[in-house]
């Protein structure tokens, strides 16, 4: 009897099965945007430092601002808190950055 059980178990393990792929279908991204051209140099440029709102991010960017002042004084930095929380759009700030800045560094964690 024991031999029969072993035999049927082995048969079960050897039998081939066809199963479905359980994963969803990635939604096609309609539009991929190229990154903005890079700057040749940061000298004489205005760089925005934008905190998106996670706790600690602003304080870190304060240190980064101070680092630029010490090490790269020719670069002007503007430290900003993004209006609203980190999940909200801030179109006014985006427009200001396009208008006023040559580049931007986002602080996106905390």
């Amino acid at each position: 009897m024991a031999q029969t059980i072993t035999s049927s178990r082995s048969t079960l393990h050897r039998a081939l099965q066809t199963v479905f792929d359980p994963l969803g279908t990635p939604v096609e991204t309609k539009k991929y945007i190229s990154m903005a051209p890079r700057l040749d140099t940061l000298e004489g440029k205005t760089i925005y430092l934008v905190d998106v709102g996670f706790a600690g991010g602003y304080e870190f960017l304060e240190q980064l601002r101070d680092w630029f002042a010490r090490r790269m004084p020719q670069t002007r930095t503007v430290l900003k808190r993004k209006p609203g929380n980190m999940f909200m759009d801030s179109p006014d700030l985006w427009e200001e950055i396009k208008r006023e800045a040559h580049g931007v560094i986002f602080g996106v964690g905390g």
Partner: peptide, 20 residues
Amino acid sequence: KPVPRPSAAPRTRLLEADTE
């Protein structure tokens, strides 16, 4: 010119047959 990640490639509906 960004391109979709490889994960966006079409997947087969069924997997290759194999044992349980």
